[in-house]
């Protein structure tokens, strides 16, 4: 899998976020920021996705959904937690229904801080994720 970093596909799921980070993730794909410059395409299908962008913390109900989406993605895959909520639980940490950040259920590779995370930092996270994605792909190749 040489050069997979040229066209990583991205999947976005809203954990229990307040929406702020979601609209910033979407803003990244629209004209002013436009991550498609890096070959990144936003997809809705876990089976096609390489990078999993997740916003918001984990609660009792979406826990299974997140786990399921993660398991449906083919390897190699990279998980990016966007926003303070996704990193740690953030402002909702003390709420009774919040179990914590995304790393309570699935392994997270890259943490993007901010409330709301700014498009610039999200793009920075995605660019780092793309590099990591290539690394993981190379590691898989060399094992063969």
């Amino acid at each position: 899998m040489a050069n997979v970093k040229r066209s990583p596909w991205l999947l976005h799921y809203d954990g229990s976020s307040c929406n702020g980070c979601d609209i910033e993730v979407l803003a990244c794909t629209t004209p002013v920021y436009d991550v498609e410059r890096f070959g990144v395409v936003n997809t809705g299908d876990p089976f096609h996705a390489d990078i999993f962008l997740i916003t918001g913390g984990i609660n009792s109900q979406n826990k299974e959904v997140v786990e399921q989406i993660y398991s449906q993605m083919p390897s190699p895959k990279v998980v990016v937690a966007v926003g303070t909520c996704a990193c740690t639980g953030g402002v909702f940490k003390e709420c009774y229904n919040i179990l914590g950040g995304v790393d309570t259920v699935i392994p997270v590779d890259i943490y993007v801080p901010g409330c709301a995370a700014r498009p610039e930092s999200i793009i920075d996270g995605v660019v780092k994720a793309v590099a990591l994605f290539q690394e993981k792909a190379d590691a898989m190749d060399s094992k063969k």
């Binding site: 229990s16 976020s17 609660n59 109900q61 909702f92 003390e94 709420c95 009774y96 229904n97 919040i98």
Partner: peptide, 11 residues
């Protein structure tokens, strides 16, 4: 519904 319920009123 309930996928995003955080329970922030109790905060």
């Amino acid at each position: 519904i309930g996928y995003i319920h955080r329970g922030l009123e109790t905060l």
